[in-house]
Nucleic acid binder design. Structure first.
Lengths: 336, 336
DNA sequence: CTGAAAGCGCTTACAG
DNA sequence: CTGAAAGCGCTTACAG
């Protein structure tokens, strides 16, 4: 790349350096079985020493199964949302590392993909997703982001995320809680609510319908939902939002309304997207990179004819400063 | 891709079909000079007939100048913003079509790129951008998104966009106007304001400082800025926002405040991003695809040693239903 | 103006 | 377990 390393180090250079053939280097590069451990070590050493970076174009060109993977987004799902942007870039990187081609595929009017790749990643899964029977019939391997029976799919453990958020708030003493969702159109938010309600219920807390707000999965939506609730007299002490964006919107609304976060209102988000959650928001972390990684792994299984599987990835509550123990007395203006 | 065209049609197939050699096909494919017009026509025909789609990996691998282009984003500029996401995908597509490699490069603590590609695209230009002298010293060709003297750069005609927005509002009879910017940290918004003020001034309208709001370049920021202004008694009849997001935030704030858009408030945005501007927002359209296209074209000039140039792309006001003629009487509750 | 041929960096049967 | 060799689809000097 830069002037110093202007000369590209190739697999040949590594091979020469390690005293093996380029085929062997290729084998260790791709983690193929049947390479002597000692040889492998030497090759790995040489790769590191020489700063070898495989040429993606050459890999793509060589792979026998000239496979391209398509990413398809369900109709109406926001391509412009941070989560999608991040998933897209992680997916592209994973595919690149696997030597697979990547392309985004568009939608027909009926919401089905307008093109078929050799394998597809389906974003924005919903119940009775029409893409599932369609691709099945076309015999195109695919992996779904979300849950579905009998197909390869990968998803964060949304239910557990909801549980962790609930446990955290309950443990802090909160019982008067509000939820902000995106309108209940996606599987993920539904599961998050499910886990959340489950734990609330176990503590005898009931989430009435009017305590489930629609934040449209945007910061503005979260703001408006929260503000409307506050102006209608909502006296909740805690909020669980199904995305970081909605959570920061809720915080802004609370603050504009004269509340202090976390002093008089605790807020928990979901996703832990850098640049949104920042170093302030308590949120349920899911790894978008892992999601992409396993999507590709499952897809490769599918492509090689291995039976489909389902991968549920763990999530982890990250406690920052948007949540605090419920205050026993009402907040006053003289509080710190 | 799909089952029917499972067999990839290569440059060889086209060559055979057109009765020429693959080298010739390559030449017309890349628009190289010195191909007989008749031959070229035949090749083009064959390509169309066979549905030829060049293999990007093979092109990348073949290009003698094994060139990779890096995209670098100025520190603090929102990678998560729709505009960036769209520019990124257009840039990647343009680069692909030119057979160039693409990669995003990260930032050092000091805001400089953490790696050097063979050519760089600089996003989020600001005055006295430290990346300019840095790359110049390193002798790395680059193109800037924005304005700067003596370097290759491409930008939308932000000043003219501001002018068009102003002309539109003035023509509709508005004189009591507010601006929502992103905090005046970027060149673009500054120029938009400049053009806007210029035309306002020509009509004897002065934009006081307190009429320039900070919307942080987000819908939530636009909402809060507008709402705060309205609650402070702002009686503007028109708003010009430097981005579509801030504009829709302003509309939401106005509506939450009981105003009707465009009946009692006209709002103009900037960008015309599908899915944000929708079919409602009057906005100044800039073509992100053109921006990316010319960025790549300029970069190719740079790479081949051609003197740097500056490309300013036209913008166009798109009138939809968020703006209307100023009502002569005050709005009443019984209006339609 | 056009063709034949080498080469880009990698992967993968095929031998051994 | 490893090497030698062919091949992926394209571009580009080099001849003519």
């Amino acid at each position: 790349m830069n002037e110093g390393q202007n000369v590209r180090v190739t697999i040949q250079d590594v091979a020469t350096n390690a005293g093996v053939s380029s085929g062997t280097v290729s084998r260790v590069l791709n983690n193929r079985p049947g390479v002597n451990a000692y040889t492998k070590g030497r090759v790995l050493d040489s790769m590191k020493r020489l700063g070898y970076r495989p040429d993606q174009a050459a890999r793509e060109l060589s792979f026998a199964r000239n496979t391209t993977i398509g990413l398809h987004v369900a109709y109406g799902v926001g391509r412009l949302q941070p989560f999608f942007a991040l998933f897209l870039s992680h997916l592209a990187a994973e595919l690149r590392d696997s030597g697979l081609r990547f392309e985004e595929v568009g939608s027909l009017k009926n919401g089905l993909p307008d093109r078929l790749a050799d394998g597809m990643v389906l974003f924005g899964a919903h119940d009775a997703d029409p893409r599932i029977p369609y691709l099945r019939e076309k015999k195109i391997p695919f992996v779904l982001l979300g849950h579905a029976d009998g197909v390869s799919c990968v998803a964060a453990d949304d239910i557990d995320g909801g549980r962790q958020a609930a446990d955290h708030l309950i443990q802090l003493g909160h019982r008067n809680i509000v939820c902000i969702l995106g309108g209940l159109h996606s599987q993920g938010e539904f599961d998050r609510l499910k886990g959340f309600q489950e734990r609330l219920g176990a503590s005898g807390i009931v989430l009435d319908e009017e305590r489930i707000l629609d934040g449209e999965f945007t910061s503005l939506g979260g703001y408006r939902a929260m503000r409307r609730a506050l102006e209608a007299g909502c006296d909740a002490t805690a909020v669980f939002a199904a995305s970081d964006e909605m959570a920061i919107g809720a915080i802004a609304a609370a603050e504009d309304h004269g509340l202090r976060v976390p002093l008089s209102l605790s807020v928990v988000g979901f996703d832990d997207i850098e640049g949104i959650a920042g170093n302030r928001l308590t949120t349920v972390r899911q790894s978008i990179g892992d999601l992409a990684h396993h999507a590709v792994a499952l897809l490769q299984d599918e492509l090689s004819g291995t039976p489909s599987g389902k991968k549920v990835l763990p999530v982890q509550l990250v406690v920052r400063t948007s949540t605090a123990r419920l205050r026993t007395s009402a907040p006053t203006a003289t509080d710190p």
